[in-house]
Nucleic acid binder design. Structure first.
Lengths: 144, 144
DNA sequence: GAACAATCATTGTTGATGTCAATGATTGTT
DNA sequence: AACAATCATTGACATCAACAATGATTGTTC
């Protein structure tokens, strides 16, 4: 990614700032996760799976806002890395229950750690109090 | 774009929030600019050109953080719409000076207006004071 | 219970995007 | 004069999101 000097008092619009910062944090996350063979979307799935332990793919697509077809290939990756498994759903033979493997849980911990470092770098110029308010404000406009 | 309920106390990491919100505002901007036949990147170029009046393409690429080859096709679009022109650079026959046409200036005004509306929608849940602090915080982490 | 609609995962396609290397023209340098 | 560097441009390439279509299964309705 590029860290071009696109800020010169211009483009001070908040929405545009969000867009550019989103790009920057996205690629920073991806760079950090690259060493594990993962990208941001894989990580999001791992995170979600860690909280529910057993999710249908459709549920993942809905909750994370990804296309079902995207879920397929992301899970292929995770499965090949031994981080997640697709198990038959005893209640519905159409669907699969996706669960984290022990390796998945383990990797998630270190990946979470890496992600937190990325975020800290991103928020470096801000005081702890500022970071808290920023997180709060973002949360409020994200919950729609 | 999807407005999925990807927020449930999970994914509360600020960097991840920035990433998702960036995606959302990006597609919102693109949707708003679509009626003019433009996308976000075109708009960014128009904005930059409005402030300098006469920029080489290389300068655009550097300042906006886009690949020079991307600049080419973006300018092709703008030129075909009659919003910008490539003029010979009197100082260097390799390069071209890109300038806004009167139509470009005019469109930029209405596009700016549209963009502001998008931003307002995005920040709807926030009070004016909150919006100001958000803009300030984002600006501080964007200036790198 | 038989027919039909809806759902789930999956595949394939398409279009947009970004990255990279290579090219032709021109300029700067030695 | 020779050579390296720069500018715009083109083309190849991987990546990726968005969509439609499919096969298997389930839910619904008459």
């Amino acid at each position: 990614m590029n860290d071009a000097p696109w800020m010169h008092g211009l483009h001070a619009d908040t929405g545009y700032l969000l867009y550019r910062l989103g790009q920057r944090s996205g690629s920073a996350f991806n760079a950090a996760l690259e060493q594990h063979g993962l990208r941001l979307r894989h990580h999001a799935i791992l995170r979600y799976l860690a909280t529910v332990d057993g999710a249908r793919q459709r549920e993942l697509a809905d909750r994370l806002g990804y296309d079902p077809s995207a879920i397929v290939s992301l899970l292929d990756d995770l499965q090949q890395l031994g981080l997640a498994e697709r198990r038959p759903d005893p209640a519905d033979r159409r669907s699969r229950l996706v669960v984290l493997t022990p390796a998945g849980h383990a990797l998630l911990r270190t990946a979470d750690h890496d992600s937190r470092r990325v975020t800290e770098d991103l928020l470096a110029p801000l005081s702890p109090a500022d970071r808290a308010t920023l997180n709060d404000l973002l949360q409020r406009i994200s919950t729609l």
